[in-house]
Simulated scan of single mutants.
Amino acid sequence: MSETTFPRRDAEGRVLRLAELLAWVAVGLVLGFVLLLLIDGLSSLLGLGRFGQLSGWLAGILPVWLFTEEFRAWRGVPARAGMALVSALLAGTLGFAVAVTVGDWLPPLGSGAIGAAISALLYGVLWYMGIRWLSDRGVPR
């Protein structure tokens, strides 16, 4: 395990602490959103569209990358695919519902970013807690 990496991981590459996982997710969301703001602003300055019309869901790319690495790190745990699917369905449904709700007041960039943030943070909690629960109980495939 390398103490210089963030988030810290065990020998198998699994994130050690929920707070670090969520912190990295938040950093990834903010970076993704800032990049989207820059791209959307530049494209609107070039006359390629109105500002705010880019999908804010793209802000979730870095957290998805982290979750993919987490999924790979737990390859020896039975039922990890089921845990990932259940977590994604629950988190994605809530994120989508909130994005649709705030979509009346915000452009797609804002509503999508809010939906991505809720989905990514909730997925992080569900995955972290769920995969450890499965691992502790030896749930069959």
Rank of each mutant, 00 (worst) to 15 (best):
V77W: 04
L45I: 03
S44A: 15
E20C: 04
S135K: 14
A23G: 15
V86F: 06
I118W: 03
G130C: 11
V64G: 15
S135F: 00
L22F: 09
P63E: 11
I61V: 14
W105V: 09
Y128V: 05
A81N: 02
A23K: 08
L48S: 12
L106Q: 07
G52P: 01
L36G: 12
A73Q: 02
F96L: 15
W133L: 13
L45G: 13
L18K: 07
P78L: 09
W74H: 15
L37A: 13
R50E: 14
G32I: 08
D40Y: 00
G130H: 04
L66F: 04
V34Q: 10
M129W: 10
G76L: 06
A113K: 07
F96R: 11
M129D: 06
I61W: 10
F96P: 03
P107D: 13
A99W: 04
L89G: 12
I114K: 08
A116I: 03
G103T: 11
G52S: 07
G56T: 08
A116Y: 02
A59F: 03
I118T: 05
A73W: 00
V100Q: 13
L94N: 08
L48C: 07
L36E: 11
R80A: 07
I131P: 01
G92Y: 02
L126T: 01
A81P: 01
V64Y: 13
V102C: 05
L94C: 11
M83H: 06
Y123A: 15
A73F: 01
